[in-house]
């Protein structure tokens, strides 16, 4: 009997959860950050691979005359050319992983806990995407610092600021792709192998290691579809110079890609079964 009053006051007035709900967004972001910094092995390994590329591909190649490779401006050092590509690779790997990791939340049950909360799914996924983006960009920044210490000449503050824009867009694009794969193929056995099978061609066909001009023409057409091509080119243009396309073009194409992929990923997540 004691509750009749309390219960009687609320029925019929139904409050809807807001589409963009700051506290849950912040919560999901914070969770990603805590988990990221707690898993020391992941932080280290996310930096080791790009470092090895720079040290054992970039440095030896930089001793050879770079002018022989078509597409690299004469006088440009190969290490300088490679560094933005490796930053792009770091973004590709970490962002796709960040997007795909919702599948582990599902696997380990945590997804259910957030999906039964009176919070819009849009806010949940927004927070998660923000978390994945932050950790990806932190890793990319670590690579830029390492590259600079190895002697890569960064063009200056304005260029660095512009590179952040390309980092955000590249990260958004591949978080979206990771989300799409996780929501559509996540239940499949060997999901990790599928991700790897997609990541490596994306990386090799992006102009991260060698310029577009050094590739056969038919491969170039594949590279033109690859969003990472524009991410890497934008990063190269803003960080060290020597971009293949005008930066505005890189920006516009990447913007479209990021909207489409992140939009689809968000949409698929919103209709995903919690169980």
């Amino acid at each position: 009997m004691k509750n009749e009053l309390e219960m009687g006051t609320t029925p019929n007035i139904s409050r809807r959860s807001q589409l963009i709900d700051p506290l849950p967004i912040y919560t999901m972001w914070l969770r990603q950050m805590i988990r990221f910094f707690r898993m020391k092995a992941r932080v280290v390994s996310s930096i080791v691979t790009p470092f090895l590329f720079l040290a054992f591909l970039g440095v030896p190649m930089s001793f050879m005359p770079a002018g022989n490779i078509p597409g690299i401006p004469p006088g440009m050092n190969f290490l300088d050319f490679l560094a933005p590509g490796i930053v792009g690779m770091t973004l590709l790997f970490s962002s796709m992983f960040g997007g795909a990791s919702v599948i582990w939340d599902k696997e380990f049950g945590f997804l259910k806990e957030v999906l039964v909360a009176p919070v819009s799914r849009f806010s949940i996924i927004l927070g998660r995407e923000a978390g994945a983006m932050t950790t990806s960009i932190l890793q990319a920044l670590a690579i830029i610092i390492i590259a600079a210490l190895m002697g890569v000449r960064i063009q200056g503050l304005a260029g660095f600021g512009l590179s952040l824009v390309f980092m955000i867009l590249t990260s958004t694009t591949f978080i979206g792709l990771g989300l799409i794969l996780a929501t559509k193929l996540g239940e499949m056995e060997g999901f990790i192998s599928i991700i790897n099978m997609i990541q490596l061609p994306l990386f090799f066909l992006s102009g991260a290691l060698f310029p577009l001009d050094a590739m056969p023409v038919w491969i170039r057409y594949i590279m033109y579809i690859n969003p990472l091509t524009y991410g890497v080119d934008g990063l190269r243009g803003s960080l060290v110079g020597g971009a293949a396309f005008p930066l505005t073009l890189d920006f516009v194409i990447l913007l479209v890609w990021s909207i489409v992929l992140a939009g689809l990923g968000t949409r698929f997540f919103s209709t995903m079964e919690a169980d």
């Binding site: 919560t27 988990r35 945590f110």
Partner: peptide, 24 residues
């Protein structure tokens, strides 16, 4: 839930705190 739905990498207190945050 029947199956565990707690974040295993977070501490118990962090899990509780996040739950409170998500519930405003």
């Amino acid at each position: 839930f029947q199956d565990p739905s707690i974040d295993r990498f977070l501490t118990g207190k962090e899990n509780l705190n996040f739950h409170g945050m998500i519930y405003h």
